[in-house]
Protein backbone atom coordinates (compact mmCIF):
# COMPACT_ATOMS: atom_id res chain seq x y z
CA UNK A 1 0.00 0.00 0.00
CA UNK A 2 1.33 3.40 -0.87
CA UNK A 3 0.12 6.96 -0.68
CA UNK A 4 -1.11 8.26 -4.01
CA UNK A 5 -1.32 12.05 -3.98
CA UNK A 6 -1.11 14.24 -7.06
CA UNK A 7 -1.74 17.95 -7.52
CA UNK A 8 -3.20 17.52 -10.99
CA UNK A 9 -6.44 15.57 -11.47
CA UNK A 10 -6.21 12.15 -13.15
CA UNK A 11 -7.26 11.66 -16.75
CA UNK A 12 -10.13 9.21 -17.16
CA UNK A 13 -10.41 9.11 -20.95
CA UNK A 14 -9.82 11.28 -24.01
CA UNK A 15 -12.67 12.87 -25.91
CA UNK A 16 -11.03 13.71 -29.24
CA UNK A 17 -8.09 15.87 -28.19
CA UNK A 18 -9.72 16.88 -24.90
CA UNK A 19 -8.52 14.89 -21.91
CA UNK A 20 -11.49 14.30 -19.59
CA UNK A 21 -10.25 14.33 -16.01
CA UNK A 22 -12.21 12.91 -13.11
CA UNK A 23 -12.91 16.35 -11.66
CA UNK A 24 -14.21 17.65 -15.01
CA UNK A 25 -16.38 14.57 -15.42
CA UNK A 26 -17.93 14.95 -11.99
CA UNK A 27 -18.42 18.68 -12.28
CA UNK A 28 -20.43 18.10 -15.47
CA UNK A 29 -22.51 15.39 -13.83
CA UNK A 30 -23.12 17.64 -10.84
CA UNK A 31 -24.08 20.60 -13.05
CA UNK A 32 -26.53 18.51 -15.04
CA UNK A 33 -28.04 17.07 -11.85
CA UNK A 34 -28.45 20.52 -10.30
CA UNK A 35 -30.00 21.94 -13.49
CA UNK A 36 -32.46 19.04 -13.78
CA UNK A 37 -33.52 19.33 -10.13
CA UNK A 38 -33.87 23.11 -10.45
CA UNK A 39 -35.98 22.87 -13.61
CA UNK A 40 -38.13 20.15 -12.07
CA UNK A 41 -38.74 22.28 -8.99
CA UNK A 42 -39.37 25.32 -11.16
CA UNK A 43 -42.16 23.63 -13.15
CA UNK A 44 -43.74 21.88 -10.20
CA UNK A 45 -44.15 24.98 -8.03
CA UNK A 46 -47.53 25.02 -6.32
CA UNK A 47 -49.49 27.68 -4.55
CA UNK A 48 -49.73 25.45 -1.48
CA UNK A 49 -46.16 24.24 -0.99
CA UNK A 50 -45.31 20.65 -0.27
CA UNK A 51 -42.44 19.60 1.97
CA UNK A 52 -39.57 20.04 -0.52
CA UNK A 53 -40.94 23.29 -1.81
CA UNK A 54 -41.19 24.66 1.74
CA UNK A 55 -37.58 23.74 2.46
CA UNK A 56 -36.44 25.41 -0.75
CA UNK A 57 -38.55 28.49 -0.07
CA UNK A 58 -37.06 28.87 3.40
CA UNK A 59 -33.55 28.44 1.99
CA UNK A 60 -34.03 31.00 -0.76
CA UNK A 61 -35.84 33.47 1.51
CA UNK A 62 -33.19 33.30 4.23
CA UNK A 63 -30.43 33.53 1.62
CA UNK A 64 -31.99 36.62 0.09
CA UNK A 65 -32.39 38.24 3.50
CA UNK A 66 -28.76 37.51 4.32
CA UNK A 67 -27.57 38.96 1.00
CA UNK A 68 -29.70 42.04 1.63
CA UNK A 69 -28.17 42.49 5.10
CA UNK A 70 -24.69 42.52 3.53
CA UNK A 71 -25.28 44.57 0.39
CA UNK A 72 -27.73 47.06 1.89
CA UNK A 73 -30.70 47.24 -0.48
CA UNK A 74 -33.32 44.79 -1.71
CA UNK A 75 -32.94 45.88 -5.33
CA UNK A 76 -29.21 45.18 -5.46
CA UNK A 77 -29.67 41.99 -3.47
CA UNK A 78 -32.12 40.62 -6.04
CA UNK A 79 -29.63 41.30 -8.83
CA UNK A 80 -26.63 39.66 -7.17
CA UNK A 81 -28.46 36.86 -5.37
CA UNK A 82 -28.68 34.35 -8.29
CA UNK A 83 -24.92 34.40 -8.91
CA UNK A 84 -23.89 34.13 -5.27
CA UNK A 85 -26.46 31.52 -4.36
CA UNK A 86 -25.64 29.38 -7.40
CA UNK A 87 -21.96 29.49 -6.46
CA UNK A 88 -22.81 28.48 -2.91
CA UNK A 89 -25.03 25.57 -3.98
CA UNK A 90 -22.51 24.34 -6.55
CA UNK A 91 -19.53 24.47 -4.20
CA UNK A 92 -21.44 22.87 -1.32
CA UNK A 93 -22.55 19.92 -3.42
CA UNK A 94 -19.14 19.65 -5.09
CA UNK A 95 -17.51 19.41 -1.66
CA UNK A 96 -20.12 17.06 -0.21
CA UNK A 97 -19.79 14.60 -3.12
CA UNK A 98 -16.54 13.35 -1.59
CA UNK A 99 -18.42 12.11 1.46
CA UNK A 100 -20.33 9.44 -0.44
CA UNK A 101 -19.16 6.32 1.40
CA UNK A 102 -17.18 3.68 -0.42
CA UNK A 103 -16.22 5.73 -3.45
CA UNK A 104 -12.55 6.02 -2.55
CA UNK A 105 -12.20 2.22 -2.76
CA UNK A 106 -12.98 2.18 -6.47
CA UNK A 107 -10.43 2.51 -9.24
CA UNK A 108 -10.58 2.30 -13.01
CA UNK A 109 -7.96 0.79 -15.28
CA UNK A 110 -6.83 3.25 -17.97
CA UNK A 111 -3.84 3.69 -20.26
CA UNK A 112 -1.90 5.61 -17.62
CA UNK A 113 -2.42 3.06 -14.85
CA UNK A 114 -5.18 2.70 -12.27
CA UNK A 115 -6.94 5.95 -11.41
CA UNK A 116 -9.67 6.80 -8.95
CA UNK A 117 -12.92 7.70 -10.72
CA UNK A 118 -13.91 10.12 -7.94
CA UNK A 119 -12.06 13.19 -6.78
CA UNK A 120 -13.20 16.29 -4.93
CA UNK A 121 -14.16 18.74 -7.68
CA UNK A 122 -12.67 21.73 -5.87
CA UNK A 123 -9.30 20.02 -5.47
CA UNK A 124 -8.72 20.79 -9.15
CA UNK A 125 -7.10 24.22 -9.28
CA UNK A 126 -8.46 24.92 -12.76
CA UNK A 127 -12.04 24.60 -11.57
CA UNK A 128 -11.49 26.90 -8.58
CA UNK A 129 -9.63 29.39 -10.75
CA UNK A 130 -12.53 29.63 -13.20
CA UNK A 131 -15.00 30.24 -10.35
CA UNK A 132 -12.68 32.89 -8.91
CA UNK A 133 -12.34 34.62 -12.27
CA UNK A 134 -16.14 34.71 -12.60
CA UNK A 135 -16.48 36.43 -9.24
CA UNK A 136 -13.57 38.87 -9.78
CA UNK A 137 -14.64 39.82 -13.31
CA UNK A 138 -18.21 40.38 -12.13
CA UNK A 139 -16.92 42.67 -9.38
CA UNK A 140 -14.79 44.63 -11.88
CA UNK A 141 -17.72 44.99 -14.32
CA UNK A 142 -19.94 46.20 -11.48
CA UNK A 143 -17.25 48.72 -10.50
CA UNK A 144 -16.99 50.00 -14.08
CA UNK A 145 -20.78 50.37 -14.32
CA UNK A 146 -20.98 52.17 -10.97
CA UNK A 147 -18.08 54.61 -11.37
CA UNK A 148 -17.98 54.88 -15.16
CA UNK A 149 -14.89 53.86 -17.15
CA UNK A 150 -12.87 56.99 -16.25
CA UNK A 151 -13.82 56.96 -12.60
CA UNK A 152 -12.78 53.32 -12.51
CA UNK A 153 -9.38 54.04 -14.08
CA UNK A 154 -8.76 57.05 -11.86
CA UNK A 155 -9.00 54.77 -8.85
CA UNK A 156 -5.81 53.04 -9.97
CA UNK A 157 -3.92 55.77 -11.86
CA UNK A 158 -4.08 58.87 -9.76
CA UNK A 159 -1.75 61.76 -10.64
CA UNK A 160 -2.92 64.27 -8.03
CA UNK A 161 0.02 63.64 -5.69
CA UNK A 162 2.89 61.14 -5.42
CA UNK A 163 1.24 59.48 -2.44
CA UNK A 164 -2.06 59.01 -4.30
CA UNK A 165 -0.14 57.52 -7.23
CA UNK A 166 1.56 54.94 -4.99
CA UNK A 167 -1.74 54.14 -3.27
CA UNK A 168 -3.37 53.63 -6.68
CA UNK A 169 -0.64 51.18 -7.63
CA UNK A 170 -1.16 49.38 -4.33
CA UNK A 171 -4.86 49.09 -5.17
CA UNK A 172 -3.93 47.54 -8.51
CA UNK A 173 -1.75 44.95 -6.78
CA UNK A 174 -4.57 44.35 -4.29
CA UNK A 175 -6.96 43.48 -7.11
CA UNK A 176 -4.53 40.89 -8.48
CA UNK A 177 -3.87 39.51 -5.01
CA UNK A 178 -7.62 38.99 -4.56
CA UNK A 179 -7.56 36.38 -7.34
CA UNK A 180 -4.77 34.44 -5.62
CA UNK A 181 -6.16 34.65 -2.10
CA UNK A 182 -9.73 33.75 -3.06
CA UNK A 183 -8.75 30.77 -5.20
CA UNK A 184 -6.00 29.39 -2.97
CA UNK A 185 -8.27 29.53 0.08
CA UNK A 186 -10.86 27.18 -1.40
CA UNK A 187 -8.39 24.99 -3.30
CA UNK A 188 -6.01 24.68 -0.35
CA UNK A 189 -8.70 23.79 2.14
CA UNK A 190 -10.31 21.10 0.01
CA UNK A 191 -7.03 19.64 -1.23
CA UNK A 192 -5.60 19.67 2.30
CA UNK A 193 -8.73 17.89 3.50
CA UNK A 194 -8.22 15.19 0.87
CA UNK A 195 -4.53 14.77 1.73
CA UNK A 196 -5.23 14.73 5.46
CA UNK A 197 -7.92 12.09 4.99
CA UNK A 198 -5.72 9.83 2.91
CA UNK A 199 -2.72 10.22 5.23
CA UNK A 200 -4.88 9.35 8.25
CA UNK A 201 -6.33 6.33 6.45
CA UNK A 202 -2.78 5.30 5.61
CA UNK A 203 -1.57 5.58 9.21
CA UNK A 204 -4.57 4.15 11.10
CA UNK A 205 -7.35 2.65 8.99
CA UNK A 206 -10.10 2.36 11.64
CA UNK A 207 -11.88 5.01 13.73
CA UNK A 208 -8.94 7.44 13.87
CA UNK A 209 -9.87 9.12 10.54
CA UNK A 210 -13.47 9.73 11.68
CA UNK A 211 -12.94 13.05 13.54
CA UNK A 212 -10.94 14.30 10.57
CA UNK A 213 -13.80 13.38 8.26
CA UNK A 214 -16.11 15.40 10.51
CA UNK A 215 -13.68 18.31 10.31
CA UNK A 216 -13.71 17.92 6.53
CA UNK A 217 -17.51 18.05 6.54
CA UNK A 218 -17.48 21.35 8.45
CA UNK A 219 -14.76 22.73 6.18
CA UNK A 220 -16.74 21.75 3.09
CA UNK A 221 -19.74 23.84 4.10
CA UNK A 222 -17.86 26.75 5.66
CA UNK A 223 -15.50 27.18 2.71
CA UNK A 224 -18.43 27.23 0.28
CA UNK A 225 -20.07 29.86 2.47
CA UNK A 226 -16.87 31.90 2.75
CA UNK A 227 -16.23 31.79 -1.00
CA UNK A 228 -19.70 33.04 -1.89
CA UNK A 229 -19.66 35.56 0.98
CA UNK A 230 -16.37 37.03 -0.24
CA UNK A 231 -17.75 37.21 -3.79
CA UNK A 232 -20.72 39.06 -2.38
CA UNK A 233 -18.48 41.44 -0.40
CA UNK A 234 -16.32 42.19 -3.46
CA UNK A 235 -19.39 42.95 -5.53
CA UNK A 236 -20.99 45.09 -2.84
CA UNK A 237 -17.70 46.97 -2.33
CA UNK A 238 -17.56 47.62 -6.07
CA UNK A 239 -21.18 48.77 -6.21
CA UNK A 240 -20.78 51.36 -3.46
CA UNK A 241 -20.21 55.00 -4.35
CA UNK A 242 -17.89 57.09 -2.20
CA UNK A 243 -17.99 55.77 1.33
CA UNK A 244 -14.35 55.53 2.20
CA UNK A 245 -14.43 54.54 5.85
CA UNK A 246 -16.87 51.67 5.53
CA UNK A 247 -15.00 50.36 2.51
CA UNK A 248 -11.63 50.31 4.23
CA UNK A 249 -13.18 48.58 7.22
CA UNK A 250 -14.41 45.77 5.01
CA UNK A 251 -11.09 45.53 3.26
CA UNK A 252 -9.45 44.98 6.64
CA UNK A 253 -11.75 42.03 7.20
CA UNK A 254 -10.92 40.47 3.85
Amino acid sequence: MKLDISLAPNILFNLGSLPVTNTLFWSFILSVALIVVTLYMRYSLKRIPGRWQSILEILVEEGLNFVESIIGSRKKAKKVFPLVFTMFIFIVFANLLTFIPGQSALSIHTQSGDVAPFRAIMSDYGMVFVLTMISIITAQVVAIITHGPFGYLSKFINLKSPLAFVLGLMDLIGEVAKILSLSFRLFGNIFAGEVLGSVMLFLAPFFIPLPFALLGLITAIIQAFVFSLLTLIFISMASEMEKKEEQSQRECMV
Partner: peptide
Amino acid sequence: AITESTAIYALV
Protein backbone atom coordinates in the same frame (compact mmCIF):
# COMPACT_ATOMS: atom_id res chain seq x y z
CA ALA B 1 -11.79 30.46 7.78
CA ILE B 2 -10.43 33.77 6.55
CA THR B 3 -7.62 33.82 9.12
CA GLU B 4 -6.73 30.28 8.20
CA SER B 5 -5.84 31.32 4.67
CA THR B 6 -2.21 32.19 5.50
CA ALA B 7 -1.67 28.67 6.79
CA ILE B 8 -3.37 27.38 3.67
CA TYR B 9 -0.96 29.36 1.47
CA ALA B 10 1.94 27.80 3.34
CA LEU B 11 0.34 24.39 2.88
CA VAL B 12 -0.13 24.91 -0.86
